[in-house]
Design a protein around this nucleic acid. Structure first.
Lengths: 206, 206, 206, 206
DNA sequence: GATGAATGAGTGTTCATTCAT
DNA sequence: AATGAATGAACACTCATTCAT
């Protein structure tokens, strides 16, 4: 009794990619639940059933979209974290890297924002929770290092600060459009400027 | 325009409130689309069909939840805007008011965050788009006044700043739990401190 | 978070019975796999979806049909086995009881005949395998007792004999029609006569 | 009548045979309806679509399997019937021939057992009904001859006896495994002994 | 001879909604 | 006010079948 099921992962990975990109776009625009496989198929110019030649299920498309995104994201994050920069430089690099990911995976990020919270409880999406924990650890330790090194303020609740920075960055995926007037690096620069120095004009000490 | 069928607005408005609160809680927890009428009815201790004595559709429950929330929100915002404070004080008051609303309408805010974008295109939810426009106008003018008065930095893109402040505040509804260790006012104070002065330690001029 | 799912088992058990009888009839006539829930619903005068108010799934209908049948069957068998008759009388009583069950549960028996073999491997239908084992034990021990008591022939392979008797009886469900010219007891009598004494004329010893 | 599309009956008939044997095995194990074309192709080490080079439909595979089996079966039966044996010898020869066919076409017999009843109503499978009629005629006349010749008992319902013998033999295909401890001839011998003389010990006349 | 990709009809199931009681 | 039972449209998914390569 050989074989499991579909070729899966087999054959042209470009077609898979194309279809996943289409799916991600629709998921991001309408929400995962509100997206029917027919809508995805329509956008891809095929019939609903044909998608099942390439993927096991609607859910497996979602999983692959999110997994691919997180894999790339952590590739970038890890190389930042491994280069052992100072806390402020680490924060700057992480934020910049985040905006680059938003630029490259806007749809996936938007899906992640909207759906990850209620998905993470499912076993299949355990990797979302794992990523979230790793994320939190990286950020908290960076902030703590910064406070210890007296480059970040000590008078702020550190978890609150973590949430503030985290949300502030990722929520940008909901309005960001690639190819707009600002490059990801430019947006990152302005965000960092706000987050680090605030939007108020500084009163210069006499 | 007599109501077609259901009594609607029948009898005790308290029961309506109760049911809407229940519904809002479930919508917030699971997402509007993923929430079945039966789940709401379960939480309310009744059968799915019975809800239709009180409301004429699932969508009308959603509408009433959001409308009620926005009405109260704008009541608060308008009284801030009408009191003609300076730009910085206006910003502080708006943010504080926002956290108070999150405290009182956590579920509604979470729903609003997650669903308003794709709802706003429907005619029925035009009021969401209208509110968003009004919101944008209020914030942009406050920021512009602040830049003009030299209390806010002039070197930042003002629309980017608007989005930054807006998202930063509302996204807090996704993690905020009423009755936690921080009061809404305390959270507002810390957020304002971060937004206005940044998280970096200021280098004191010699 | 209360409630599991459907009322299930709740409400009028007569309606359930009615619907299960209808389903059993269709399953028996067309085979379980070839039976669509729409066909069942048609026979019941309702829409396919409406069946799901009463049952979780097509499979759960099948399970309930088979379980109910086997429960009743074993009720009859056990009272035979408990009365500690001699082997020949036990065999006669079991066969007679079987034809009575075929008379009362013709559809269920036919389904059992056709589907039990490939169903029994599924965990959900483990009770089929269990019943089959219990069945085999009862029959084998009766036959062995009979051989020991010299009322059954000793020159036959006992397992082959078991299969012969077992199949011979149950397969009758495929042609039996309740209300035909023979009562179940009459059919049992003739079957027993064939099984016990054979169809050949006896050559009287001189 | 030129073949519409496919070459059909192309090239090596051995490959056809191989594939049909594979298909028969899967049909027998899982049931015709529950067997997907992909499962057959898996077992044959090819893709589902490739089967359509050899056959023009799943149903035509089934037809060919059953037709081949019945052709061979009737070849054997006819030579028995043509040799004009006495009724008892005819019965013995038919039963023995049947077990030989079960041995050689176990899968086809099992399929025939399970599916023929509901297939026979389709025009395409009219040959099943025809075979059944021919079968019935052969058996009934043999039994009647036996009763007339006083070698079979006259006190039994003859149609009941027919069904008894028929079912008793064919149902063995559901448990028979070629290459087991009993040869088909040995099984036939034991079955005949039971059917003709019964399983009860004869009370010897003093 | 066989593959890869697609089709389209159908399948079991879900769910918002209705309505007589 | 609420229930029990049903509706009907939609949904994710399956599968026999086709066909260009």
């Amino acid at each position: 009794m050989p074989t499991k099921k579909k070729p899966q992962v087999t054959a042209s990975p470009e077609r898979r990619r194309e279809l996943l990109d289409t799916a991600a776009e629709v998921f991001a625009a309408q929400g995962y639940n509100a997206t029917t496989v027919r809508k995805i198929a329509d956008h891809a110019g095929m019939l609903a059933g044909s998608l099942y030649y390439h993927f096991d299920s609607k859910e497996s498309m979602l999983e692959e979209i999110l997994r691919t995104f997180l894999d790339e994201l952590w590739h970038g994050y890890d190389s930042v974290l491994d280069s052992r920069l100072g806390p402020r430089e680490t924060l700057e690099a992480l934020v910049t890297e985040s905006f680059r990911e938003i630029d490259r995976h806007r749809a996936a990020v938007a899906i992640y924002q909207k759906e990850s919270k209620h998905l993470a409880v499912q076993e299949r999406f355990e990797f979302l929770a794992a990523s979230q924990r790793k994320f939190e650890k990286a950020w908290l330790s960076t902030l703590e290092r910064g406070v210890a090194a007296e480059v970040f303020r000590a008078d702020l609740d550190i978890r609150l600060t973590y949430r503030f920075v985290r949300d502030t960055v990722w929520v940008a995926a909901s309005w960001y459009r690639p190819g707009g007037q600002h490059s990801p690096e430019e947006i990152a620069r302005q965000y960092l400027s706000m987050v680090l120095d605030g939007i108020a004009v500084r009163v210069t000490q006499p």
